[in-house]
Nucleic acid binder design. Structure first.
Lengths: 137, 137
DNA sequence: TTGATTGCAAAGAATTTGCACTGGG
DNA sequence: CCCAGTGCAAATTCTTTGCAATCAA
């Protein structure tokens, strides 16, 4: 669980908005758009400005606390960075995000990069389709 | 090479703007933002509206003539769809895009999807880093 | 002719920024 | 006390749309 400690280490002051945003990100779903974070706080009766949500998420991203994804559709999606790299499966119907990790895929990526003399810094693999639930429905 | 024939088959009238945009997409680099397409045409002395570039690219996308990518950085990148699926390596310095295809990666993606009961419709794999040239510089 | 296509300008959506006020350390 | 942090509104950036004029078939 992320705490004030993480904030301090990132050189960020421990403020209410930041703690609240952290606690939203820790929620069950794990993947949120800025709007979802904002609405979630409003629904919980918290006062917060939309701009602050964006600013804080961006600060968290720079501090390495949060990962930002650009799935299809234009909106950014944020998740807490637990240090465990993983890729994502996004349901095109219910927008649910499922994480996965495949060592072989990772390995092949490095191999391909090396083949091309490309210095790999980062990568993103998103798979789009229908999750189990949405297929049945 | 894409031609008026492709347009007709897609139910699109053969117009100058469309042909010009097609010819830009056929250019060497192969991957363009809407702005690059627009500027390329202006530089060539062609009259065209920015909105038309976007409209045409979107029509081409819907017609299956063009693929649209959302690399990091917010801007969409377009390329002609030659029917040969491939993934992309994007140089974070010079923004050059290199295509690659790895059967093993493709295979593992299907396997992972199946494991999760996920019906895979599409995927995007982008690798970010430094291309050969930019490492040397 | 006639509906498809364009150009232009204005609208939209997502995200960022300027600035004065507030608050954590 | 003092500067980081926040709220608010306005600005940016990328992309889409409405509408009247224009063009391909």
């Amino acid at each position: 669980m992320s705490t004030a400690k993480d904030l301090k280490e990132a050189g960020l002051k421990t403020t209410l908005p930041r703690l609240r945003i952290l606690s939203v990100l820790e929620g069950a779903k794990g993947h949120f758009t800025a709007e979802e974070v904002y609405k979630s706080l409003l629904d919980a009766g918290e006062e917060i400005a939309f701009a602050t949500v964006y600013r804080v998420l961006t600060q968290f991203e720079n501090a390495g606390l949060v990962l930002r994804h650009n799935f299809e559709g234009g909106r950014s999606v944020f998740e807490l960075d637990d240090g465990q790299h993983h890729d994502h499966m996004v349901c095109v119907k219910c927008t649910t995000v499922t994480e996965f990790f495949d060592p072989l895929i990772e390995e092949r990526q490095s191999a391909v990069a090396e083949e091309y003399g490309f210095k790999l810094e980062d990568h993103s693999l998103y798979m789009y389709g229908l999750c189990k639930n949405c297929q049945e429905a």
